[in-house]
Every structure is written in C-alpha cells, then in structure tokens.
C-alpha cells in the first residue's frame, strides 16, 4: 500500500533533490561554454566567501521574519477588533479584510510598484497632499527604503491569512471560558493576554511557520517590484539563485546555494511538524 506513495515521492521529490546535490558538486554551465567537471566542495567554499550570498541571506531573514511578524500582529489585531461585530456589517467587514488575499501576487506587486512611483505614484501624491513629505520619494529606488517598501506590500497580502486563521481560532474559544474569566473581572487587555492569547498560541505558531516557509520562497513579488535592486538591497536567496542560474547560467554554483536554502527550509519544516504534533 505504501509502495506507490514512496515511488511517487522518490520521483517527484527525491530525484530533483539528489540531482541538485550532484550539480552542486560540479562546475556546470548551462551554455556548455566550459566542460562539466567535478569540483567537490568548491562551490560551497566559494559561497562562504561570496558577500552577495551573505547579503541575500540577511535580506531573506529580514523579509521573511519581518513580514510574518508584522502580518501576524496585524491579523491578530483585526481578528480581535472584528470579533464582536455580527450580522451583515460583520460579514461585509470580514469579506473586505480578506480581499487582499484573493488578489494574485503578481498583480499586487505591479499595483504597489505603480503606487510607489516617484512621478505619478499614488503614495507620493497622498503624502504630498497631506504635507507629510515636501518632495516625492522614490520608494523602490532608495537602497534603504526598497526592502521595507516591498515588505509593506507583502504584509498587505499576508495579513488576511492570519486574520482568517486567528478569527476562526477566536471563535473556537469555549464561551464558558470567556464567561468564567469575566466573572473573575477579567476585561479588555487582561482578557486578551491571559485568556484569549493562550488559546491562539497554536494557531499563531502553525500559521507563522507556514508563512515563513512561503516567504522564504517568495520570488514573484520581489522580482516584479525591484528585481532584487537597487543594487542588492532587495536581493533574497531565491532572487540570487535565479540570477545565477538563468542570467549567469552557473547551474553548479546556483545548486550549491539551493542546497543551503533547502537545508534552511528543512529546519523550518521540522519545526512546523513538531508544532502540528503539539497542537
């Protein structure tokens, strides 16, 4: 019974992983300009001395953990705020809050890209009209602003996911628990911190880990908005691997980075499975 599943997994997952491992030990150029040859751990040694790799890793960590943390907090806040809104208004509010999740990521990326434009962008127009800034800012073309600007876009798309899961978890808290806390004079922040949050812990943990894995692999938004620029300020691991593999055609070196990336994702996947078991 298990054999067919194992066979499918071996083909779908095992073959690409093993082949990537093999490629990572070779000097392999897709154009075939140099003959393929075994180089052992050279690609991994090169990676250790490559500042762009370390910068990409740092950007990936900031992008992933920063976006997930902010989106989780916003999702939690929205879930708590809308918890007691019932009826037609409640349904309408929830539907509206879920809308960003329904928009395709590439569309979101282009939407924000045009909103961020220095000349003619909606964000600059709004900030100028309200006197928050006195000159338009090139949000995606200032090294220090580009990554936060892309993260804002990411948070906008991701918050509904947290809102959805946390709202469902909130609705699952037994009424008796809330009532008995109220009898004990628990109100407002105290009720949230001491009663509701412990019930949301597992939902938060599982959804955060899922989103960490998804964001670690996020290519479309970053590529459509900045292509990893300006300079390398928004280059994450996935963007760097893409450039190495499909612009430089250095498949061997790109595979070595891919292996490191895979190991990092495996660590998150193990944490996710443990969290699932706990919940």
């Amino acid at each position: 019974m298990v054999l067919p599943s194992v066979a499918v997994l071996a083909i779908v997952v095992g073959y690409p992983v093993v082949y990537t491992l093999l490629l990572s030990t070779q000097d392999y150029n897709l154009l075939g300009t140099t003959p393929e040859r075994f180089v052992g751990a050279d690609n991994y040694r090169k990676l250790l001395e490559d500042p762009t790799f370390w910068l990409s890793l740092r950007n990936t960590a900031i992008y992933t953990f920063g976006s997930v943390a902010i989106a989780a907090l916003l999702g939690l806040a929205l879930a708590l705020l809308t918890e007691n809104i019932g009826g037609r208004h409640g349904r309408a509010a929830r539907a509206l809050l879920l809308t960003p999740w329904a928009v395709p990521f590439v569309v979101v990326a282009f939407l924000f890209r045009y909103m961020y434009l220095q000349n003619g962008g909606a964000i600059n127009a709004l900030l100028l009209a309200t006197n928050v800034i006195d000159a338009p800012i090139s949000w995606l073309n200032v090294s220090s602003l580009a990554l936060p600007a892309v993260m804002v876009t990411n948070v906008w798309t991701m918050t509904p996911f947290f809102f959805l899961l946390l709202a469902a978890a909130l609705a699952g808290i037994p009424n008796e628990v809330i009532e008995s806390a109220r009898v004990d004079r628990a109100r407002g922040a105290s009720l949230i911190v001491h009663v509701k949050l412990p019930f949301l812990r597992n939902a938060l943990l599982v959804s955060s880990l899922l989103m960490i894995i998804a964001n670690f692999n996020d290519f479309a938004k970053i590529w459509a908005m900045t292509q990893g620029g300006p300079g390398y300020s928004t280059t994450t691991l996935v963007v760097y691997v893409y450039r190495l593999a499909f612009e430089n055609f250095s498949i061997g070196y790109a595979s070595a980075i891919g292996v490191v990336w895979l190991l990092l994702l495996l660590a998150f996947a193990v944490a996710y499975l443990r969290a699932l078991r706990m919940s």
């Binding site: 150029n29 154009l31 300009t33 090139s138 073309n141 200032v142 090294s143 220090s144 580009a146 620029g229 300006p230 300079g231 390398y232 300020s233 450039r243 612009e247 430089n248 055609f249 250095s250």
Partner: peptide, 22 residues
C-alpha cells in the same frame, strides 16, 4: 558573450548603488 551577461548584474547593481545609495 556570456561574460557580458554575467558581468551585467554586477555592473548594473553598482550603477544602481551609485544612483540610489550612499
């Protein structure tokens, strides 16, 4: 040639750093 395309990322990243960075 291949060197031009692999060099392009490095050079244009530098141009972008000059244009947008400090």
């Amino acid at each position: 040639g291949p060197a031009f395309s692999s060099g392009a990322s490095a050079i244009m990243a530098g141009v972008q750093q000059a244009v947008t960075g400090s």
